[in-house]
Design a binder for these strands. Structure first.
Lengths: 389, 389
DNA sequence: ATATTTAGTCCATAACTTAGACTAATTCGG
DNA sequence: CCGAATTAGTCTAAGTTATGGACTAAATAT
C-alpha cells in the first residue's frame, strides 16, 4: 500500500530525486539540477546544501568553464565517507567487497574455502571474520560501512532472511542472520538476483536484461527498467529448471530434462569426459584451447540447451538483452554462437528483434558487487534516513 | 524517472490514496479513512469533500450504527456518473462492455462476426459502430464514458498503439487508432494481458497470479502485487511458444514443439480427430461429455503439455497462483487434473508450495472487463486529473 | 437527564516549494 | 581595460497543503 504524503515525505522524495540525478550524472551544477528535475533553483540549492552537510555530496571545487556567465559549481556524490559491504558465500570461496557511495570498489577480499561439507555455522563464522577484517580496513581508509548484503547460491526468503534451499552448499532452512559482530545490518539475498544487479550498476550499462549466472546450478536475474523482478515468493529466475526436453535426463528437482542437466557445470564437465573433478572449468578451458573434440561437442550441446531454455524465457519474460555470466563468461567464445543461433531459429519468425546475447565483464564479482550496490542504491533512493542520523 | 513532488503532487497522491481505500473497501467513514491512511481527520475530510464535489464519491446516506458515539457517515465510489468501455476484436466476435467507476458491469454487447478474412478497416468500422451504440445506451442511463481500451489477440506496441502481429486475425502492423467517432481516447492492448487484469479486478480476488488465455493461440498475463508484468517491449507472456519438446512438431513461430502445437485450440481439435472445424470447442465438449476416448486422450495430452510449459513458467516467473481461462475454463474438468499433476511432478522437490491451478470464472469476458477496468483503475489511481475537468 | 464516546469541522500554525529580486562571477565587444 | 550581457546561486515574501487541538454534533450508557 502506498503511504500518505506529508511535507516530510515530499522533501524526502525531492532529496532522493536530486541525489539520484547527481549519482546518475557523475557531477552536475545546481542550475543543471534545477533544469533536469523541474524544481526551482531555490529548492535545489537547499536540498543540495543538506546533502553536502550530511556528507553524501561534495562540491568538486572544479569550476566548469561554460560559454558565458558565471560558471557553476559542480557537485558529485561523495565516495569519501559512506560505504557498503557485499558478502558472498559460495561453494568454494567466500568473498567481501567494499563499495563507496560513489560506486567505486574500494576493497576486494576473497578467501578460497571448500564449503560443500562444512557446517553452516562454521561457514558463517568464517564469513564474519572476513567481513570484520574488511570493515577494519575500510575504517582505516576513512570509510564508514553502513550496511551489507550477503549473496547465497540458493532460494532466499527475503522477509525472514532464511536460506530455504542451497543445494550445492547442502543448506536447507538456514538463517545466517543476524551477524552479531558486524556493527551494521546485513540482509541475505539470492546470488543470481544480486549478480544481475551487479551487472546493472557495474556492468555494460543496460537497464533491461536477463543475466544468466552459470555455476554448478544455473540461475538468472531479470532486470526490467532498472528494477529487479523477483516473482511472488522471490524465487523467480530459476532458469536451471526450465524444460529443455521433457523426456531428458532426470534432475534433482524431480523433473526431467532441465537445463541444468545440459548446461550446469557438472553436466558440462561430465559431457566433456575425462576432466577430473578438481580441474573444474579451468580444465575444460584448457582442453577447448587445445581444440579437444569432446570438449567442443559438450559446449555445443550446452549452448544449444541454453538457447532452447532462453527461447522459453524470452517468450515469457521479454528481456531487452541477455547477458551470460558466471562460467558462461569464460566459455562465451565456444557457446555464444550456438546460443544466438538457437535463439534466432526459435524466435525469429515471431519477433522483429531477437534479444542480443552478450558476455558479462564482471565474472565472479557480479554478485558481491550487486550486494554492496544494493545498499548504496537504497541510500541513493532514500537519503532522508541518513540525513538525520 | 520519478518526478519532482510539489504541493499539487502531494495533494494528488493523497487524493488517490483516499479514493483507492474507498474503492478497495466498498464503503468507509471519514474517521476510518483517517485511521487507515494515517492522514489527519481534517485532511481526509477535505479530500473526501473534493471527491464528492467531483462526483467520484457519494455519501451512502446510511449512518452505520457502531457501539457508542456519533455514527459515521459512510462514503463509497459513485457508480452513477463515470464509466469506461472495454472493447475487443477477436477471431469470431466483437465485444463491448461498459463498466462504471464502482466496477459494476452496466452493459454487455457481443456481436458474432468472422474476422479471419475481413479487412482490418472493415473490422475497425464495425467495432466503432458497436462501441457507439453502447455509448449511446450508456448515456441513456446517465453515464459519461470517459475512456476505453481495445483488446486485440496479438502483440501490441503500447507506445504507438500499433498491433504488430495478430496472426489469427491476419493482421500485421495495423494501427486501429484513433477511433475518430468516439468522443474519448481509446488505447490498444494485448488480450492476454487484459484478461489477466480482468481476472484481477472482477475475478476470484488474487493479486499474484498467471492467467492463461487459451484461444487459437495460447497467451498468458502475469500479475504481481496487483500490477501487470509486461517485459521490455511489452511482449511478455507468450506462453504458447514456450518449449514443450524441442524436437516436436514445427510451429509457425519458426520453432518446434511449442505449447501451442499441443494445447492450442487447433492442435487440440485436430488431436481429437473427427471434429469438424465449425463445431469448435462446443463439439469437443459434447464428445468429452459422451466419454469419447480420442477426445479424452487429446485433453490428457494438452494438459500434460500445459503442465510442462507451466513448470518452466513457474521456475522463471514464480507466480502465486495459476488461473486457466479462455477455452481451458470449460475444459477444466478434463485438463485441470493433469496440469496439476505434471506441475507437481516437475516442481515438487524444489519448492515448498507448488502454485495451485484454478479455473477462471470470467471466461470470454475477461479481456473486455480488464480493458474497461484499466480505465477505471487509472482514474482511481490518479483522480486529480478528473477533478479539474 | 447527564456523562461518555465517537464523527466530523474550524482555525491557527508549521513545513515545504515557488517566483522574482538580488548578488556574484564570468565572457563579449569595443 | 571597461561596461553590457549572461549565467549561477542566494535571499525573501508569498502560496499551498497538512496538522493538532479546540469545538460542535450525535449517538449510547447509566
Amino acid at each position: 500500500m502506498t503511504q500518505a504524503v506529508r511535507h516530510d515525505a515530499m522533501r524526502a522524495r525531492n532529496l532522493a530525486l536530486v541525489l539520484g540525478e547527481v549519482s546518475a550524472r557523475g557531477s552536475v551544477t545546481r542550475a543543471a539540477l534545477a533544469e533536469i528535475t523541474g524544481l526551482a533553483k531555490t529548492t535545489v540549492s537547499k536540498l543540495v546544501g543538506d546533502l553536502i552537510e550530511a556528507g553524501l555530496v561534495v562540491e568538486t571545487g572544479v569550476v566548469r568553464a561554460g560559454e558565458r556567465g558565471r560558471p557553476g559549481m559542480e557537485v558529485r556524490v561523495s565516495g569519501e565517507r559512506i560505504a557498503a559491504i557485499g558478502l558472498e558465500i559460495n561453494v568454494d570461496y567466500l568473498a567481501a567487497h567494499v563499495v563507496d557511495l560513489a560506486r567505486s570498489v574500494r576493497l576486494r577480499r576473497t578467501q578460497p574455502v571448500d564449503n560443500r561439507m562444512a557446517q553452516p555455522g562454521d561457514v558463517i563464522a568464517n564469513l564474519q571474520d572476513l567481513a570484520l577484517s574488511a570493515v577494519d580496513e575500510a575504517v582505516d581508509i576513512g570509510l564508514r560501512v553502513v550496511g551489507g548484503v550477503l549473496a547465497v547460491p540458493g532460494t532466499v526468503d527475503l522477509a525472514t532472511g532464511t536460506v530455504r534451499r542451497a543445494p550445492n552448499l547442502g543448506w536447507r532452512d538456514v538463517t545466517p542472520l543476524p551477524l552479531p559482530r558486524l556493527p551494521f545490518p546485513v540482509r541475505v539475498d539470492n546470488e543470481a538476483n544480486l549478480a544481475a544487479l551487479g551487472e546493472l550498476w557495474f556492468g555494460a550499462g543496460h537497464r533491461d536484461f536477463l543475466h544468466v549466472s552459470g555455476e554448478i546450478g544455473v540461475g538468472a536475474g531479470l532486470i526490467v527498467g532498472g528494477e529487479p523482478f523477483r516473482g511472488f515468493h522471490g524465487f523467480a529466475g530459476e532458469l536451471g529448471h526450465v524444460v529443455v526436453s521433457p523426456g531428458g535426463p532426470p534432475c534433482r528437482c524431480g523433473g526431467q530434462g532441465c537445463l541444468e542437466r545440459y548446461a550446469g557445470q557438472d553436466a558440462l564437465l561430465a559431457a566433456a569426459a575425462g576432466i577430473e573433478a578438481g580441474a573444474g572449468i579451468a580444465g575444460l578451458l584448457a582442453r577447448l584451447d587445445a581444440g579437444d573434440q569432446d570438449a567442443l561437442a559438450a559446449c555445443e550441446r550446452a549452448g544449444w540447451a541454453l538457447g532452447v531454455a532462453l527461447s522459453s524465457a524470452v517468450n515469457l519474460v521479454d528481456p531487452g538483452t541477455i547477458v551470460l555470466g558466471g562460467i558462461y563468461a569464460p566459455l562465451f567464445p565456444w557457446i555464444g554462437g550456438v546460443v544466438t543461433e538457437t535463439l534466432a531459429a526459435r524466435l525469429g519468425e515471431m519477433r522483429e528483434v531477437v534479444p542480443s546475447v552478450e558476455v558479462s565483464r564482471l565474472g565472479a564479482e557480479a554478485a558481491t558487487l550487486g550486494a554492496a550496490g544494493q545498499v548504496i542504491q537504497r541510500i541513493i533512493a532514500d537519503p532522508a534516513g541518513l540525513l538525520n542520523a
